[in-house]
Simulated scan of single mutants.
Amino acid sequence: MFKKWITKRTLTITLIAVLVILFVYFILPISIPLIIALLLALMIEPLIKRLEGKMGSRKWSVTAIYSLILGLLLLFGYFFLTKLIENIIQFAADLPDKMNGLIDAWSKIEARINTVLPDSVTTTINDEVQKFLLSMRDSIINYFNVENITLFIAALPELLISGLVFLVALFLFMLEIPKIKQFIRNHMYDSTYQKSLFVWQRISGSIFGMIRAAFILSFITWVFTFIGLLFITPENAMIMSLVICVVDLLPILGATGITIPWAIYAYITGDHFMAMKLLLLSIFLLVQRKVLEPKIMGNGVGLSPLPTLIAMYIGLKLIGFIGFFVGPIVLILILTLFESGAIKTNFKI
């Protein structure tokens, strides 16, 4: 009975499954810089081929594109990080005064509430709000304590090493992608290779299209946010628009996860005009995101807007944040398997 199942094919499939599980569990978590480098190299491979046709040399085309990417990363990193660190230091220095101002603002609001609600109700509300504000102030101050700053500084060497590994791996992957493809082809039957290539092209096109779509949406958000903040708080427009742009990549939080709390804070502290402008900016960002997202994301992953929206929503509900991206990819994978003939169905109604 067992001999029937113990075949070369079964042992091979079992071994591959075990290796995949071990890789996902042990190797994948520590290989993030390498994986990101490989994905980025695959994304820019068409550009490298196009430039290679003009320059006649892959090494020179890779060197040119890599130098451009490295220059942009260093330039962005320098300006963004220096400005961000400067604002974080200023924020930490001003935090106690801001929180005390928030508590004073609440005291004024409490005086208004006392004229409407019974004393027992206002006392309870005041106690809870005061506890919340004080605990939030203490938590934020404790977060910027010496111990946490020391831990962050201690982690910098590891981050630096990961960054260097990413940069070196990116250059090597850009050079070696043709050899990697040829190696894979040499170890597969031609029919299997053609089907795998078809599936890979569709899936990779969807993944890279989704990444491009996400960055396009965030770039559009950055443009509108930067322009809006120039009229609201011009001195912080650049750094805050960049922070909001990065946060906008998170589908659950989004840009309004920054602008709406900011508007609430401005209103509570008495700056009603600024709160109104931030609220209008939040509404505009929310509307443009919801209007553009299904269209741009659908074009990026190769699906029409409706299936893309359904897949993103179901993925988000099933497995949370990651499902927002995984949902459309799974749908593309299923459709691709049907198109490639890997899954065959003959049923009709």
Rank of each mutant, 00 (worst) to 15 (best):
F26A: 15
V121C: 10
L197E: 12
G257P: 05
I13G: 09
D104F: 02
T256N: 15
V129A: 02
D127I: 06
F226C: 09
F215Q: 00
G205R: 14
T256V: 14
D127R: 10
Y189T: 02
N346Y: 15
I36A: 13
K49N: 11
I65D: 04
I264N: 07
I211Y: 03
I332Y: 02
A111V: 08
I334Y: 04
A17M: 13
L278F: 10
V291H: 06
L34A: 13
L249V: 00
P29T: 00
G320N: 05
A41V: 14
I85N: 14
T10G: 02
I319G: 00
I161K: 03
I184W: 15
G298D: 10
K54G: 12
A93N: 04
G163L: 13
K317W: 03
I35W: 11
P251K: 00
G53V: 15
A93F: 04
L156G: 06
L316V: 09
W262A: 09
K108I: 02
F132R: 08
L278H: 08
F132C: 11
K59V: 11
I177T: 06
G302V: 03
K290D: 10
I69W: 11
L279H: 06
A214W: 07
Y193C: 04
M274F: 04
F284C: 14
F91I: 15
T308N: 01
A275G: 06
T259S: 01
L160H: 04
K4F: 01
G323D: 02
I177D: 07
E176F: 15
T336H: 05
H272W: 08
Y265P: 06
V243I: 15
